[in-house]
Nucleic acid binder design. Structure first.
Lengths: 251, 251
DNA sequence: TGTATCGTTTCATAAAATGGAATTTCAGTG
DNA sequence: CACTGAAATTCCATTTTATGAAACGATACA
């Protein structure tokens, strides 16, 4: 199991790492790192980059990661937080993560209103036209953002969808300064959303790993009304952060 | 790393599992499962339920899962670019690299047509009779090219296969001036391909490290029709370059 | 109290991890 | 084009850990 620290280091890093880099970062002899990487590669958890000299997380690891996060025992607490939010604001609440250039619903609790939008956990939506998607794009490293956005096709889903590159960049800058993101009917006509970040703090670095978002028909909840729910959402997002906090592990 | 199958099984299950349950599910002897669970528990990936008789995914695993998902490997992004191309041109698309005097398929996405050529990623084809292979030969340093070509056996795969040394050199010169390469049924009768280079820019130097190629039965797509897809391919190749640039960035 | 199942320990054997040293590879440089 | 240094890889004697059949202990239920 010791090779796992390599996987963790690679998953934390926002770029592929070389052998020597890993060896010094983890203070492990080079031949050992070499073997560990071999083990991880064999196991399908890690793969070499195109140049064959660096390593990155591979598909089996992603599959495992998704299983873990949608797993009930550890997800039960998060689900409970979602239910609490729905009770407090009366609208559907989603927990989402970024998957490439798309947003994925990890979990959701729906409001009890007869008029509501029904998604399934696991379904996906383009990042550029959703509140949580734009939030992720706004808060991620610029280099990573370029990577995620390269080669995607922007579709004008509604009249309000942001299609221009510079318009999107302005929007992202606004989101960064506000600390929240809105979807102003940019994906579905009549549907508005408000998303706040869920952070994972690791020592001095802080990364937005998930988002908490409420969605509602604009007929029931205007954008201004929605913003009054911001404190509730932020508090719930803090609780979410707690569930994924790095507690001091001794071993 | 073998204990990982336990973690995967536990993550998939939507409820905590006992030892015997896991042992029969995975067809592994009980003492082994017992030890594996001990290893995973020690590692903080798994924890016992309150009654101490079942196991569930623990916090370190969730933390790792978030890290993994917040960081999509560039290989997956490349795969998405391939998918995009297949959507746009309707034909199978390959990402290839040069491996000695052979072309190796790094990744591929197949068209949905019933009539299609089925290769596996990882399979190899001689460079001199494939579009991407000739592209590599055309764009590489002459010295390296001679090295790659010396001592290989040129086989006349079809009537159109280029077997003469000077004919090949002329072809390579054409490819250099065009910026793309064609396979005119030179490897398989009835199969035509179009390949464009994927560059890695390193300071002022620019090297062709991979190729993007579409392939189709000539009965469905003539060479002229295929050339109309050139702009789409070139754009996708630029996106590919982006992903490679990120692979090469260390810090 | 019987008994059936699950969980745990034991142990001789087989397999693998370890890391210092040596070797190879490769990109950058004179 | 040889040189150079850092990075990657291989080697290998030694230490450490994994393996699973069998035996044992714990627990639940009748």
């Amino acid at each position: 199991m010791k090779p796992l620290v390599l996987l963790e280091r690679l998953a934390e890093a926002q770029h592929p790492m070389g052998l020597a880099e890993l060896a010094t970062a983890l203070e492990v002899p080079k031949p050992t790192v070499h073997r560990w990487l071999g083990v991880l590669e064999e196991a399908g958890l890690v793969q070499r980059t195109l140049d064959g000299r660096r390593y990155e997380v591979a598909t089996r690891a992603s599959r495992l990661a998704f299983s873990i996060l949608s797993n009930k025992p550890s997800g039960a607490i998060r689900h409970e937080i979602l239910r609490q939010v729905v009770r407090d604001v009366g609208e559907t609440c989603n927990l989402t993560i970024l998957d490439g250039a798309e947003v994925r619903y990890l979990d959701r609790v729906e409001s009890q209103w007869p008029l509501r939008i029904t998604f399934q956990p696991g379904s996906r939506v383009p990042a550029y036209c959703s509140a949580s998607g734009k939030l992720f794009l706004a808060l991620m490293q610029p280099a990573k953002r370029d990577l995620a956005l390269c080669g995607i096709k922007v579709e004008k889903k509604t009249d309000s969808t942001i299609v221009g590159k510079s318009a999107l960049m302005n929007e992202l800058a606004d989101i960064r300064s506000n600390g929240y993101a809105l979807d102003r009917e940019e994906y579905l006509p009549g549907l508005v959303c408000l998303a706040v970040p869920v952070f994972r703090t690791n020592g001095r670095s802080r990364a937005c790993v998930a988002a908490l978002a409420i969605q509602a028909p604009v007929a029931r909840l205007s954008l201004e009304d929605m913003l009054t729910k911001l404190p509730i959402l932020k508090e719930a997002a803090d609780s979410m952060s707690e569930t994924i906090r790095h507690d001091s592990e001794a071993n």
